[in-house]
Amino acid sequence: MSSPPAPSPRAEFLAGSREVAPTLVGTIPFGLVTGVAAIAAGLTPVQGVALSIFAFSGIAQLVAMQLIAVGSPVLLTVTAATVVSLRLLMYSAALAPHVAHLDRRWRALLAYLMTDQSFASSVRRYGEPGDHPHRHWHFLGSSFTLWITWQVAVIVGVIAGSGVPTTWSLDFVVVLTFVALMVPVIRTRADLAAGIVAAVVAMATLGLPYRLALIAGSVGGIAAGLAMEFAHRRKR
């Protein structure tokens, strides 16, 4: 019995692209809102689009533009963007073994394009049994589809930016997209403890300048999560 031939690069690319298509209904409004928010934060349209191309991360972009808007020092803006992007380090560690055989240019390209959704779909594809030498094209297909959709949505948002009346409270869409990201990542009791402590610390430190409350809350939450895990292990 011979196994079927491995899918071609083209077939892998298209499969990756198709796999993330349903998530675009979330990507498009998030991108639009991020574009609108860039203008609201006082960035020029060119700066808003440049930030999107350089950072290519909704959360990093939103946090960065909030801090730029209140005139915080560059070092603090970068620190806050780093804290909210630390999950990318986790994704990078998880995917690294699968792409280790590729040359450096390929790896740099895939790294630049990697997002929450393309990470999820690539991890799934790499976990499938069988010999599939072109799976990095699946990674590229999902990532590139998300990249182009995001950039177009941000550009449209930047252009529409000033036209949306404030009574629509469209800024609330940003908070809601964070709610949609937040709920699925809280799976264990330790996650819940981390989340509650992070929220309480962030609220208690709101008086700090330059939105340092975000960093204070995050650090408090991580410490609470780790403490829960150690306490749990000692009991056993």
């Binding site: 937040m182 409350a213 991580i222």
Partner: peptide, 16 residues
Amino acid sequence: LAFVPPSVLPAIVAPG
């Protein structure tokens, strides 16, 4: 690192 997402997101959402 595993506790970063469940910490960062509530710290953004609660003030929002």
